Computed example of a mutant assay.
Amino acid sequence: MRYASVQYSILYNEFVDSQGTFYPSYGNPLDQDWKSTTATSGWTQGFFPGVLWNIVEHNATRQLLQHAVDVTMPTAPFANVTGTHDVGFVIMSGFGNAYRLLKRQEYLDVIITAARSLATRYSPIVRCTRSWNSAQGFLVIIDNIMNLELLFEASNQTKDQSLYNIAWQHANRTMYEHFRDDNSTYHVVEYNETDGSVIRKYTAQGYADWSTWSRGQSWAVHGFTIAYRYTKYQPFLDKAISAANYVLTHLPNSTDVIPYWDYDAIHNSTLTYQPRDTSAAAIFASALVELSEYAPTSDMKNKFLENAKAIVNELSSATYMIYGNKEYKLYALLANGTQGPYPKNPYDVSLAYGDYYLTQAVVRLAKL
């Protein structure tokens, strides 16, 4: 976390120099410059303030708190965006953490506005919120399970039952449609928005339609853990545990706990090199820490915690950290992230969400 504070203080200065328009998204560790977005474009801009809030939660100073506030506030207009499901990622990483820590009404107002924006994407016929806009069908991706936190939190704060119902219905339908019998996940489910039936199940970022994209599986574990946090609905917890156990039995081995970008590609692709995805590992580790709180037995609790610690320790090692390679120049934490699908999109890169969920996992572990 000290290293994170140093790296992200440098990024904060870059944010200031850009007059508030620099939000890191991904970057080649060999380069000094991130590929960035603005405060109101893309889907990754919430993770920069999110990392800063994690740093504040770990060791607050007046200066770090001001940095977090400064970087969060410009993203507020995104709460009015109805054209994407990613409003949940953007707002909860920044304003969600800000409100949790400071309880300021102005932060809650942004969360409520964002939840109502996301709710406009709900179809009572499909019983899900739309992920990607498409004229050909109603598309829902497994990533979208993470955005339900926005709806649940806003419902909690306002007592608006309709927001809770939307989130619950989306989680419930996802539980039945996105999982295979072995508790691995499909990335995309395309529904018929006229009658709600399933048209097809496929991948956009994984190796194949039948394979398991590692970050998608991590989203599933994390998202159903959050859904259980708010609902205490036992099937959501059971699904989170089952999805987590799938990951634990498909990691490379007991001492190599960072997944490849797709759990099946390493065994089936003709490409001799297969990249890891440190973001999938970070998301999973953070989820495991919270999931351990709800584990029904002490053995399961300990298993989840020990694996979370092992993953965080490995991610924090010179193998995957930017400081581990003297040729790396990027001001970031993690290397070896993969956007997917490989090799079409960037791989062996730093990803803003990888840094966010790693620091979240560390903060959660530190509270134990």
Results as ranks from 00 to 15, higher is better:
V6F: 06
Y8E: 07
L11P: 06
D31L: 13
K35H: 15
S36P: 04
T38Q: 11
T40S: 08
P49G: 06
V51L: 09
V56F: 15
Q66E: 08
M73A: 07
V81D: 10
H85C: 02
V87M: 00
M92D: 07
S93K: 10
G96M: 02
G96E: 09
K103N: 12
K103P: 04
Y107A: 14
I112G: 06
A115L: 03
R121L: 08
R127D: 02
G137Y: 13
G137K: 13
I141W: 04
D143N: 11
D143S: 12
L150N: 03
S162D: 01
S162W: 00
W168H: 15
T174L: 02
Y186S: 03
H187K: 06
T194S: 10
G196Y: 01
A204W: 11
V221W: 14
I226S: 11
I226G: 09
Y228G: 01
T231Y: 04
Q234C: 00
Y246E: 13
D262L: 07
S269L: 01
P275D: 04
T278Q: 10
A280K: 04
V289C: 08
T297L: 07
N307L: 01
N313L: 03
G324Y: 11
A332I: 15
T338E: 03
Q339G: 00
D348A: 09
S350R: 03
D355R: 01
V362R: 15
V363D: 03
